[in-house]
């Protein structure tokens, strides 16, 4: 190679090298900003009382829909044209959306229909608002709904914010486990040590399982159906909740079983009402009395819950005597 050709060759080589460029740095996905650590609210001592299930006595026989007391909450609802009820849409057997009909149905929805029927003479004169467990009290306090029928346990703390009807169902907390775990003897809350167990955020079920099974690995989900999804994905081995809810979950998964066990809490369900609407509470209690007498409560139980929960203890006896 001549000396003169040298620089030319170098330039040509550089040209070829540069022309061949064009690669890019690999695309990267920025890490999501770390979510701020959720602050755990300080533990507070729940209010204690000995009359949590005590409600306001019915004010007399149930009035006819066109004979509602003037100025009453029921009349206002009637004037509006529909009852607004806060319910669940994914608690199978109690209140869940039927993919076949597109309608929410279940034991709790039967309660809503009874109230609508008593006010309008039409069991379908209602509007359902699907709410989460955590939204049950705010929905009532803010008067977004007239009643909440969403497997809500009556307790003293809640009485401080809202009012309850008489108890309409006595449930209790149990555990649901994988079939093979049940075979291995994990059949009660005391056996949950080291087991991953799911409960919905913000529920008494979560507090109860932490208290009753301190060695369990507790996992939270937004709802019980969310827990079942985690269960099916192998993220948890057990779910805890009211027996009614667990029955609905077990019905959706052949590998989920609710072993024979004693309930480790009492969960008396009540229909939630705004604390100021005492007349509506009394009215609802009259409806519950009518359901006892005309057999409609029993009919609902037979349709929705008996197939999975058995005979049951029947409609709970109401306790009245609370005064506003």
């Amino acid at each position: 190679m001549s000396r003169r050709a040298g620089p030319v060759v170098v330039v040509a080589a550089l040209a070829v090298l540069l022309a061949g460029c064009g690669g890019y740095d690999e695309t990267v996905v920025a890490d999501p900003e770390a979510a701020p650590a959720s602050s755990v609210p300080p533990a507070t001592t729940p209010p204690v009382c000995d009359n949590a299930t005590q409600s306001y006595a019915p004010s007399g026989p149930l009035p006819a829909p066109d004979d509602l007391p003037p100025g009453s909450t029921m009349e206002k609802i009637r004037d509006r044209g529909r009852l607004i009820a806060g319910v669940s849409a994914d608690t199978y057997l109690l209140a869940s959306n039927s993919p076949f009909t597109g309608q929410i149905e279940g034991f709790d929805i039967d309660m809503v229909e009874q109230v609508a029927d008593a006010i309008f003479g039409d069991p379908k004169a209602y509007e359902l608002k699907v709410i989460t467990a955590g939204d049950r009290l705010p929905a009532l306090v803010e008067s977004r709904v007239d009643i909440v029928v969403r497997n809500m346990t009556i307790n003293c703390a809640r009485w401080e914010e809202i009012a309850f009807s008489a108890e309409y169902y006595r449930s209790g907390q149990k555990i649901l486990v994988r079939e093979d775990l049940a075979d291995d003897g994990v059949d009660s809350v005391t056996e949950l040590g080291g087991v991953r167990v799911c409960a919905p955020t913000g529920t008494s079920s979560l507090d109860n399982v932490r208290r009753e099974a301190p060695d369990a690995v507790v996992v939270e989900a937004p709802t019980h159906t969310g827990c079942l999804a985690l269960f099916q994905e192998g993220e948890v081995d057990a779910i805890t909740g009211d027996d009614t809810v667990l029955a609905g979950l077990a019905a959706q998964d052949p590998y989920a079983v609710v072993p024979e066990q004693e309930t480790f809490t009492d969960e008396p369900y009540g229909i939630g009402v705004n604390a100021a609407d005492v007349d509506l509470v009394r009215f609802v209690n009259s409806i519950l009395e009518r359901m006892r007498s005309d057999g409609s409560w029993r009919a609902s139980y037979l349709q929705w819950l008996q197939p999975t929960l058995g005979q049951g203890a029947g409609q709970p006896q109401p306790i009245y005597g609370r005064t506003p």
Partner: peptide
């Protein structure tokens, strides 16, 4: 959903 189970809606949400 085709079996009528509400968990179908949960999987949809997830």
């Amino acid at each position: 959903n085709r079996q009528g189970f509400p968990i179908g809606a949960q999987y949809l949400r997830e």
